[in-house]
Structure formats: C-alpha cells, structure tokens
Design a protein around this nucleic acid. Sequence first.
DNA 1: CGGGATATTGAGGGATGTCAAGGTAGGTGG
DNA 2: CCACCTACCTTGACATCCCTCAATATCCCG
Lengths: 254, 254
Amino acid sequence: MSIASPTLSASAPEAAARTAAAPTQCSNCHLRELCLPCGMDGNAVERLDSLKFSRRRVKAGTSLYREGDRFQFIYAVRSGTFKTSLELADGREQVGGFHLGGELMGLDGVAQGRHASSACALEDAEICAIPYALLAEMSAGAPGMQHMLSRLMSREIVREHSLMLLLGSMNAEERLAAFLLNLSQRLKARGYSPSEFHLRMSRAEIGSYLGMTLETVSRTFSSFQQQGLLEVDKRHIRIADMQRLADALAMPVH
Amino acid sequence: MSIASPTLSASAPEAAARTAAAPTQCSNCHLRELCLPCGMDGNAVERLDSLKFSRRRVKAGTSLYREGDRFQFIYAVRSGTFKTSLELADGREQVGGFHLGGELMGLDGVAQGRHASSACALEDAEICAIPYALLAEMSAGAPGMQHMLSRLMSREIVREHSLMLLLGSMNAEERLAAFLLNLSQRLKARGYSPSEFHLRMSRAEIGSYLGMTLETVSRTFSSFQQQGLLEVDKRHIRIADMQRLADALAMPVH
DNA sequence: CGGGATATTGAGGGATGTCAAGGTAGGTGG
DNA sequence: CCACCTACCTTGACATCCCTCAATATCCCG
C-alpha cells in the first residue's frame, strides 16, 4: 500500500512535449485492430484522430489512477502491462485484471464520475489518455461510435462474468490453467508467442486475481511442471502441452 | 438443464393485448426513481415514453432469455425476482446475480449481439422489454440519454467488481453477511423492510452466487442464528442485529 | 557485498466440500 | 381429505484442498 507512488498528472510537461512531437493517431497505430478503433469505419477513425489523444509514459510500479480519483479519461494501453485492483477494508488488495497493449482501462469510472479501481503499471509502459467527455460528445453525432463505446463496456461486463465463474467454481489447477490459456491467447493476438512468455506479475498478484494464496500459485506451477504441462523458471513460462492444459479446464477432476 | 422451459416470445398474443390495454410509460411508473429514467430530465423521460415498451409476464421458473439467444432487448424488472446465470462445461450453473424491481438485465448482450447469460424468474414476474436498437437510435440525438446508458453499463461493471472481491477474498460468513446486507439495502430502497424479508432463491442458488456449497450456506445461516445475528426459518429471514452483521464484514476473523 | 523482494517447499491445521440420512413443506392425484 | 412424491433444508461424519506459518534459496539492485 505504498502511498508514495503518485498519480501522474495529465499536464506534466513531458507529456505535453511528447504529444507535440508525435501526435497520436489511431489510424496508423499498430494496435488499431485491437483497441478503440476496432470495428469502426474509416470515417469514424478519422474523427478519433481529430481528438489527438495525449500519450503518457508510466514507470513500473506507478499508479495511472487510483480508486476515488475524479474520472476524466479512459486509458488505452500502448505498451507494457497494467494491473487494476481494489483495496479491501483491511488493507489487502484484490486484483481485478491484467491489461495488455490495446486494452482499455477506466470504464468503471463512468458510473460515479470517480474511478472505482486503481491501475498500476507492472513494467515501464505507455498509454493513450482519452478524454471521456470529448468521446461522449463526439459520439452524440455518430451512432456507430456510440455503439462501439457500448460494445466495449459490455465486453468488460462479459469479461468479469468469466472471472466470476472462475472464482466461484474452479479449483486451484483449473484457475491457473484458465489464467495461462487466457494470457496465451491475448499474447498471440498481439503477435507474441502463445506458448512461451514472461509473466509481468508476481505470484502474489496472480494469486489475488485468482482468489488463492501465492504459495498455492507456486505449488500449482510446480505441479503443472511435474505433469509435463509447463516448463517454469520463475516468471518465464513455456507451455509444453497446450492441449492437456486446456483439458485441465474442461474436465474437472471432481 | 430443462430444455423444456421455453424462451418467451415478444410476439405472444397476451403480451400484445396487455400493451394495448395499459401502455407502459416510464413517467408514471412507480419504479422510475430506481430504473432506466433515474437521473434523466423530464424531456428525456418523455422520449422514453414515446417508445411504449412492451410489458411481459414471466412465470416462476421460466427463462426470459438464454445464453446464446440473439440480443434484441434489455429488460427492466417491474415485479418479481430474477436470477442470471452461466452454464459451465460440466452442466452445473453459476449464478451471476439476482435482480429486483427496477433493475436491468441483458446489458452483457451488447458486446456480441447475443446474450452472454440466461435470465430466469424465481417467482411470477413482470418485465419491460426495451428494444436496444431503438434506445441506441434515440440516444444518438440526446447526449443525456446516451450518458445514462453508459452509466448503467458502468454500474454493472462496478457491481461485478464487488462480486469478484467477495468471491476472491472472503470466507463463508463474510460472503453470506455481504449478500444479506446488500439484499437488505436493495429491499429498503424499494420500500420493503430492510430487516425482515422472504428469500426468493434456494440455498443452492445462494451458494452458487457466493461460490460455496448449499450445505455451507445452510450451516452459516444456522451459525448466524446461534450468534443472535439472524432469525431464520427456511426462506424467511429477520436480521436481528444489523450492526453486528455489518461487523462480520468489516472485521474479518483472520 | 548486503539487503530486500520474490519464489519454492515442507509441515500442520482448519475451513469447506462431499456423502449420507432424515425432516419438512407443498403440490398432485386418488 | 389423505397419501404420496418431490424439492428443499438441516445436520452429522469424514475427507481434502488450500491456507498459515516457517525455513531456505534465488535474484536484483544499490
């Protein structure tokens, strides 16, 4: 609960400088197929370009926003990995998700006008800050754009459904298998290897996300390795048998 | 699993008849402070009225929609109680939420154009079917309306956050206490007693929602009764000590 | 080189799941 | 109206998964 790490300010000089140097445009972003513009027509993407989203670097371990902060922006990850989390009454944290390039954060702030969770960079990262008010204003005249926004929010609801399912009715092995397979697919969609990757999050963060202790996460990794499903070296993971890992999900041991 | 219970059709003759007899208007609905119109100005509510939502009765145990059905409507509960759920690979169900009067269901369908969960009435109920396409079309010209829709979806995301927290880091007593306190507040907001009510859902459904077995739910009810927090008679609940029940949440036993 | 964060592994215990038996309420048909 | 049936709830005994506590190893960084 490091109170030290400050929320970055939108008006930081370096952010302004960067924006001037390299205006951020969705139309030629390498993540356009995954991110906000996904499914939009050229016309709509041009409108997005006109907003000239500001870009910001976020250092590893730094918060992008915190629970209770005033909601102004939604954020798209350009590079790096984030976690979003809630703080419990007793100070522990509950991780709500991990976010890779092209994924959006902050949509939970629309409801109350304040962020309902915190977002923290797990490695040095870069984001686009999208002013929600402008986005809403613009989509008033553009039905397709508004629908896109609704779809994105709905997608977040569906994502949380599956997490709920995971937390509500799976054992430790199923949970970790589900986590790894989901991560593998998302990495693949971003052009990385689906079978070999480096985890950006600690065992404790994985455990919090999956509703188990860091020791159980560690033991389950070891167990998967002994079963020949994975090769694990700290945070470096190789999925040795994707099929059997998927089976661990579909066929509960019960 | 009962393939028998049919999804109701929007074109059921009785539904059409009812609509003609009593056109549904948000502006004089007794739930307007809790439901869709909440926070809208008079102008916007009039626009809602012009849509003339169709009303539908749903018998206890009947599905309103099912996972995979084409998404056309979002539904507002007028009376009765619903559960929403997902089906697991092995046939078990995972309950995702319970819905009282004034609450909306089906927003998870926007993402894919298909419903991502099923909704089933726990008692005889009545709903408003809100054609999503019309709603989206109308809100294109009305910024306030569109913002309302976004807020509602965001609220759903926040709701699932708290469920995630509950499933990820609470023990059986904390979970049941959280469930009862939440239900109590929602009943109070609807003009019912917050301290004495009838549960519309079975122990198994509560257990699925909270990520525990029906036996543990039953035992935890008994334990609360022995501690003097509740009086329990099957589905009839009286909260005898609201404060200590709330304490069970804030001060984990750990 | 030292210190802190992170990961692994073991031992033991406790919370919760599983299996089983019995009770109660409500609906249905004779 | 009663008998029966089914669904639901409660409770007990036991098993087991996972948490807790603890020791050690490893890595990274100053």
